[in-house]
C-alpha cells in the first residue's frame, strides 16, 4: 500500500492556495531591451496618432496606465515627506539616500523606529537602524515579523513555519503560541501586549500576550488577508470584505475586492486592485494592478506599490499630484515590497 502522509489532501489544498497566490502575484520577467523598445515605440506612435480628442485622451490614459504612471522619476531622489521607508533589507531615507541593512526578505520597524526586526530563511534578526545586529534567533522558515510595545518594553511576533511566536524585544522568552494561519499579526497601539492574529479556521483572536488571556475572537470563516487596528477597533481585511470590530461587537462590513489597507490620519485607506480610496473617496485609480499600501508617519501621503510597472506611487491624502518613482527593484537590488514607513 502506498504511503500517505497525515492530512495530505488538506495540506495539498492549503498549499495550492499559497502557491497559486504567489504565482498570480509574481512580477513578469522583463522583456529583452529590443522588444521593450518596440513596445515603447508602438505606444508613442499610438499616442501621437490619436491626437487630443476626448476619446483620444481616454485611450492615451489607458496606454499610459498600462505601462505605469507617465513621467515617473527614474530614481528615488527623495521621499515626498519625512521619515524612513523600510523595504526588506533596505532603509530609504527622506533625502532619497538608501542604506542596506543586509540580505533580508521581510522586516518591520520597532514601535519608535530605532530598531528593525528582519527575517531571512531560518533566522530572525534584530538590528539597529544602521544595520548593526543586536541579536538573532535560529528558527525554521521565519516570516512576518511584527514589533510592538512601549518605548521601554517591547515584543516581537513572528512566524516560524506555520507556528506563531512571541519573543521579547531583547530576544529572550520566546513563546510558541501554536499553529496559526500565516497572516501577519497586528499589535494593538496603546495597549502594549495585545495582539491580533488569525487561526487556521479563519477566526481572528485578540489576545493579551503577557497574561495569555483572550480578549475576544471572531467566528470561524475565510482567511483574512490583513489585520490592522483603527484606534481601538480591529479591522479584518479579506479578499472580498472588510469587517470592523469594536471589542467583540461586529460593527461594520464592507464588500468589494480588496488587496490591502492602511491607517492614515486616523482613517482607513483601502487598496483595491485598481484604486485607492479614503473614506469612500477615490484618491487614485488605474487599469494596472496595484500591490500594497503604506501610510506616511505624518498622515499626509500613501505609498502605493505597482509591481508590474516597478513603480512606487506617492499619493497625497489631501489632493494634489501623484508622484511616481520607477526602477525601484533595480535600485534596491530586486527588493520591491515595502515593510513600513516610520518617522
Amino acid at each position: 500500500m502506498e504511503f500517505r502522509a497525515p492530512d495530505e489532501h488538506r495540506a495539498e489544498e492549503r498549499g495550492w492556495r499559497v502557491v497559486s497566490a504567489a504565482y498570480d502575484a509574481r512580477t513578469p520577467v522583463r522583456r529583452p531591451q529590443r522588444v521593450r523598445a518596440a513596445v515603447m515605440v508602438a505606444a508613442v506612435a499610438a499616442i501621437a496618432a490619436i491626437g487630443v480628442t476626448p476619446p483620444g485622451r481616454a485611450v492615451v490614459h489607458r496606454v499610459r496606465a498600462a505601462i505605469g504612471v507617465a513621467n515617473a522619476d527614474r530614481a528615488l531622489y527623495s521621499l515626498p515627506t519625512g521619515g524612513r521607508v523600510l523595504a526588506g533589507g533596505w532603509v530609504v531615507n527622506a533625502d532619497g539616500s538608501t542604506r542596506r541593512l543586509g540580505d533580508y526578505d521581510e522586516s518591520s520597524w520597532s514601535p519608535f523606529g530605532r530598531y528593525v526586526v528582519a527575517a531571512k530563511g531560518d533566522r530572525l534578526v534584530a538590528l539597529t537602524a544602521n544595520g548593526d545586529v543586536r541579536w538573532q534567533l535560529g528558527r525554521p522558515v521565519v516570516g512576518l515579523p511584527r514589533w510592538g510595545g512601549t518605548q521601554t518594553d517591547t515584543r516581537i511576533a513572528y512566524f516560524s513555519g506555520q507556528r506563531l511566536h512571541v519573543v521579547a524585544g531583547d530576544g529572550t522568552g520566546d513563546r510558541d503560541l501554536g499553529l496559526m494561519a500565516r497572516v501577519a499579526p497586528a499589535w494593538r497601539p496603546g495597549s502594549p501586549f495585545t495582539l491580533a492574529y488569525a487561526d487556521r479556521h479563519g477566526r481572528v483572536w485578540v489576545v493579551r500576550t503577557d497574561t495569555g488571556r483572550a480578549v475576544f475572537h471572531t467566528q470561524p470563516g475565510r482567511q483574512p488577508r490583513k489585520l490592522l487596528w483603527l484606534g481601538d477597533r480591529l479591522v479584518v481585511v479579506g479578499p472580498t470584505w472588510i469587517e470592523t470590530y469594536a471589542g467583540a461587537d461586529h460593527v461594520d462590513v464592507t464588500r468589494g475586492r480588496f488587496v490591502d489597507a492602511a491607517v492614515v490620519g486616523g482613517r482607513l485607506a483601502v487598496l483595491s486592485t485598481h484604486r485607492v480610496t479614503l473614506d469612500g473617496r477615490t484618491l487614485f485609480s488605474t487599469t494596472g494592478r496595484l500591490g500594497q499600501i503604506v501610510a506616511s508617519p505624518d498622515g499626509r501621503w500613501l505609498l502605493v506599490t505597482w509591481p508590474e510597472a516597478d513603480q512606487w506611487l506617492f499619493v497625497p491624502v489631501h489632493g494634489g499630484r501623484v508622484r511616481a518613482v520607477g526602477n525601484i527593484a533595480r535600485q534596491l537590488d530586486g527588493t520591491f515590497a515595502v515593510d513600513g514607513w516610520t518617522s
Partner: peptide, 27 residues
C-alpha cells in the same frame, strides 16, 4: 535543515488555552 534546527532550538510551552487545536492526524 529543519530537522537539525528543531534538534537545536529550545521551545517554551505554548499558551494552549487560546490556540485552535492541531488538526493533523494522530496515526
Amino acid at each position: 535543515d529543519w530537522a537539525r534546527a528543531r534538534a537545536l532550538r529550545a521551545e517554551v510551552e505554548a499558551g494552549d488555552e487560546l490556540v485552535a487545536p492541531d488538526m493533523s492526524s494522530n496515526g
